[in-house]
Design a protein around this nucleic acid. Structure first.
Lengths: 148, 148
DNA sequence: TTGCGTGCAAAGGTTTTGCATGGCA
DNA sequence: TGCCATGCAAAACCTTTGCACGCAA
């Protein structure tokens, strides 16, 4: 299947690049791009294509019905695992040595080949962890849901 | 908020327990449970509550519009990271030492506190990796999408 | 008895699609 | 020129909700 480089496609791509590592809702992207003449369907269609292509990831958030899309620069990001802070929503990059270390360890232990580009580790970043510690004085239990 | 133990709730819980680590669509759960008198709304409402409670996770899959839910036994699973094979859809458990190793490494390198119960590492399991290798003789490129 | 949970069906919001037209190569 | 991509609006779909009733505690 051929693929043309249309104005809409370019705009979407540059929008995504400008918002790398953020989790974006389709309607937000759509709204921001509508000024420049990109229709909702174009956004959805391109988003779907990019996702099928592995260039962006679709994620779900609790409490809302819509899907969110996350883009990261391929060359830059293929190498390392992402750390997503469930408190502030920011995404961090684990450094390459750490990533390699982690991936190797898992691969040698389980024979499981880690796909760095698709793996997102969830947890709490340093900043939010600090904040929580402070709060913890008053309220000891911070984030101890049960879970899997 | 009080919480009653209803027939539907029990059925859903035991259904989830019987399908631990699988990624289940709400309508599938609903269909399977409808025989025993659990309505769609009950399924959704309970699923939402369980998710808000951190007991199950909601995930998105590419190519479909619906949400999938994954349950794992809390006591058993809180300790280790999950490895989700994007080829066959199975979820594996990294052993506890490996999990600790990985989590510690990330925590010490980035100050990022890993939430084991919410982290799912994506990649290809040993079985599927083997299968791919065999195929690779004919077709060298196996799964090299770009990505983040 | 109190009030949470359920079922049903209607409402809701997000995402997908059909069709005619526009634009890239 | 040939075909992919876009726009628009309607359709589809999954999920959520309102309301009255049932049931756990």
């Amino acid at each position: 299947m051929q693929s043309y480089s249309t104005k809409q496609r370019k705009l979407l791509l540059s929008y995504l690049a400008a918002h790398a590592d953020e989790e974006l809702a389709a309607d937000v992207i759509s709204r921001d791009l509508s000024h420049e003449g990109v229709s909702v369907s174009a956004v959805y269609r391109n988003l779907a294509a990019l996702e099928a292509d592995g260039k962006i990831q679709k994620v779900t958030k609790s409490g809302t019905r819509r899907a969110f899309y996350r883009f990261s620069d391929a060359a830059e990001c293929r190498r390392h695992i992402h750390l997503y802070c469930t408190e502030c929503g920011k995404t961090y990059h684990a450094d390459v040595p750490t990533t390699d270390y982690v991936a190797d360890r898992i691969e040698s232990a389980s024979g499981f080949e880690v796909d760095r580009s698709k793996t997102v580790i969830r947890g709490v970043c340093r900043e939010c962890g600090k904040a929580a510690d402070t709060t913890a004085n008053a309220k000891k239990t911070v984030n101890n849901g049960s879970g899997t």
